[in-house]
Design a protein around this nucleic acid. Structure first.
Length: 434
DNA sequence: CCTCCACAGGAAGCGCAGGAGT
DNA sequence: ACTCCTGCGCTTCCTGTGGAGG
């Protein structure tokens, strides 16, 4: 026994033997070798990530200054105005707010001021309750995940804010989503928190992607929430070039990313309403593709590939994370479309959906529920549904799949359960032709 | 002009999960 | 142990409706 292990040990230690053992058939050899190689393009990958906050925000210094001015009374411990910030995605709203918060936080710590800053994304928080819970946690109040009434959480928040006698400056990002789903009650209550305070209190920086969001607000909420307003316009292509250049010089080795590649990324992103995040993603993915293929320089073709990949990746990601029954509806739609059944109305869709469910041994949802799922898929842009009247033949929705079929197929193939449906041919009773 | 189809989509409410307070 | 809370996914019930065909 002992001798045996010794021999094995030896053979493992022997470098030549080991190499022979794996030989050229080692499937990971190439991957390992490449991964161990010094990166030729990326110097600092973090800089190209979406959560990175640069030390310098090109073309936003005016916004930074304005926001700083508006919030500056807080540094003298008097309450600043609430601010409302509008602008489309990727226009630098979040970056500016976080940047200003960071600088103010440093200043407050240095001076020992009772100032606190918190950033809450309402879309990620999801519900009024969780927004409140995060507010509580930001001032060190532990709140259970569920179980308390909203009023109770709110009271805890208010009383401990008073107790601690601090000023809490909070950024509510994507605030429009909260209001669309739950109304403006929470905002109303939050704007009134200060009424019972002598010192300290709550300061709100509301951020919205939706420019028409204001119309949803009660005038009282609107007036106290948007004492000040900031509008972020989309970046132009030259501005995007500056932003990309700034990051590229930190993120990449010199000479690996030519200027025309940066310009291409900027131009492509500028076409889609000047979204800086997309421009940065595009450049990052292009560089990753270039590096993986062993190139020393990022080229235009890498950008084109990256654009394609990002687009496909987004669709795949969106579709493959759908809940089961939404996927079933999508699969139904796919199977019908593949068998040349277009101009589909809800009736036959419900019917085929139920058939598919019984094939898989799944209890189908009610038509009413499926109707809501269809609306959700419509909002996601996966399909288009349009209410039409067919006179004598009733009122229904005409449903068209908008996602390319091969991409839907990929999603179905990647799903263990749905995969088995790919060979199924649905039969639709042609009660009357459309 | 009236009827009536085949649904759309609003409202209400149910059961469950996951918790708090008493 | 019991009551109460909210969010979530869902069903049931219901009212509303544009326009082809009678």
């Amino acid at each position: 026994m002992k001798e045996n292990t010794k021999i094995e040990d030896k053979s493992f230690r022997g470098l030549n033997l080991q190499l022979k053992q794996w030989g050229s058939e080692d499937p990971l050899q190439d991957v390992v070798r490449k991964a161990l190689q010094k990166p030729r393009i990326f110097k600092d990958r973090r800089v190209m990530r979406s959560d990175y906050i640069p030390g310098n925000l090109p073309h936003r210094s005016e916004h930074i200054r304005r926001l700083g001015e508006i919030l500056s009374p807080s540094l003298r411990l008097s309450r600043a105005s609430n601010v409302f910030i509008y602008g489309k995605t990727g226009t630098g709203k979040t970056a500016v707010v976080k940047y200003v918060f960071n600088r103010f936080r440093e200043a407050a710590e240095l001076e020992g001021l009772p100032l606190q800053f918190t950033y809450i994304n309402c879309r990620i928080a999801g519900t009024e309750y969780r927004v409140l819970a995060e507010l509580c946690e930001s001032i060190g109040v532990k709140v259970p995940f569920t179980g308390l009434s909203k009023a109770e959480v709110f009271n805890r928040f208010r009383s401990s804010l008073r107790e601690k006698n601090t000023i809490l400056i909070t950024c509510l990002d994507e605030i429009d989503i909260l209001v669309k789903n739950y109304g403006d009650n929470l905002l109303y209550e939050l704007t009134r928190v200060n009424e019972s305070f002598d010192t300290g209190g709550l300061n709100i920086v509301g951020v919205s992607n939706d420019l028409h969001f204001k119309e949803l607000l009660d005038p009282r909420v609107l007036s106290s929430l948007s004492e000040e307003e900031l509008v972020f316009h989309p970046y132009t292509a030259p501005e995007l070039v500056d932003i990309l250049m700034e990051r590229a010089t930190i993120a990449f080795y010199p000479g690996t990313v030519p200027e025309e590649v940066v310009k291409l990324c900027a131009a492509l992103a500028a076409q889609e309403h000047g979204d800086a995040r997309r421009a940065i993603d595009l450049l990052r993915v292009a560089a990753e593709i270039a590096e993986r293929s062993g190139a020393h320089i990022v080229e235009e073709k890498h950008v084109r590939l990256a654009q394609n990949m990002i687009e496909r990746g987004r669709i795949f990601e969106a579709l493959s994370t759908l809940p089961l029954h939404s996927k079933l509806v999508l699969t139904t739609l796919y199977l019908l479309a593949r068998n040349d059944i277009h101009n589909l109305t809800s009736g036959p869709l419900y019917e085929t959906y139920r058939e598919i469910c019984s094939l898989l041994g799944i209890e189908p949802l009610s038509d009413r529920r499926v109707s809501t799922l269809i609306s959700e898929l419509d909002m996601l842009g996966v399909l288009k549904s349009e209410v039409v009247s067919l006179g004598r033949y009733g009122r229904t929705r005409r449903i068209t799949i908008m996602t390319p079929l091969d991409e839907v197929q990929q999603v179905i193939e990647s799903d263990e359960l749905l995969k088995s449906l790919l060979n199924y041919k649905p039969i639709v009773k042609d009660k009357y032709s459309l």
